[in-house]
Design a protein around this nucleic acid. Structure first.
Lengths: 135, 135
DNA sequence: TTATCTGCAAACATTTTGCAGCGAG
DNA sequence: CTCGCTGCAAAATGTTTGCAGATAA
């Protein structure tokens, strides 16, 4: 993959962004910081990075793709805040073993699995509680 | 929800179908069996059934929604064959406890989680193996 | 009767692609 | 110099919606 200003900008942005973001959000963030990069380029770059295993991809309930710099190289799962997007990476041997066992018991091979937890983080829950008190 | 011929046809089809299918696949299946039902109606009905908890919904890697009659009322997960769609419902206390613990440890509330296993079932794997032998 | 459902077509949102020109190596 | 990358706009896909007419209750 050739290094271009666009690719560098996307890379930098991903470095600065801790949470899962859609391609469109990342594109808008680039625009705000003065980098005028085509949406198609953002998609192409993210797709390439995902294939190279350099970013994590997951889907929200609406079926939109969410991207984020992959911190851990090994397989892992996520705990994501629905409100602010804050994300915690989780290593879960329990889940790995469970998936492997279930697959084996049912005669499935070439197995893969997804396991993500969505919730409201303490900070967002607190903010909501406080705003109710004021109302 | 009013009972209509369309709704009945979709209900019947779901009863006969064990595997996860996209709305478009279900619509095509209805067309093949002579039921000419609008695609929009299929979507509207599936969405309503999903909201009522009468069907399970999950997303494939492309972000498409997959629907299937919900056999177990309680929360559960799925083991899905990538090739033929064959699906096994799985009760997984291990995963429930894992999700609850991780959320608690990180101060998250109102948590929800997804956990699905995708693989190739024994039958499809066997078919592929046999076809390789012939080639 | 009447509120709900249906079908159609148009609208939408996200993502992909064709193509001409630009630029990193 | 060359091949890959970019931007734009158009297309493809999956899904939703507006509306006028049909219909279950």
């Amino acid at each position: 993959m050739r290094m271009t200003p666009q690719r560098a900008a996307i890379d930098d942005l991903l470095d600065q962004t801790d949470d899962f973001r859609t391609a469109q959000q990342l594109h808008a963030m680039l625009a705000e910081s003065g980098e005028s990069i085509g949406l198609a380029t953002v998609y192409r770059t993210l797709t390439a990075l995902a294939e190279a295993g350099r970013v994590d991809v997951l889907r929200n309930d609406d079926g939109e793709a969410l991207f984020r710099r992959c911190l851990q190289v090994e397989h892992h799962h996520h705990l994501v805040c629905r409100d602010c997007g804050r994300t915690v990476e989780i290593a879960a041997d329990v889940v790995e073993r469970w998936a492997a066992r279930i697959a084996r018991e049912n005669g499935f091979v070439e197995v893969d699995h997804t396991a993500e937890i969505f919730g409201t983080c303490a900070q967002c829950a607190g903010a909501r509680y406080r705003s109710h008190q004021h109302a």
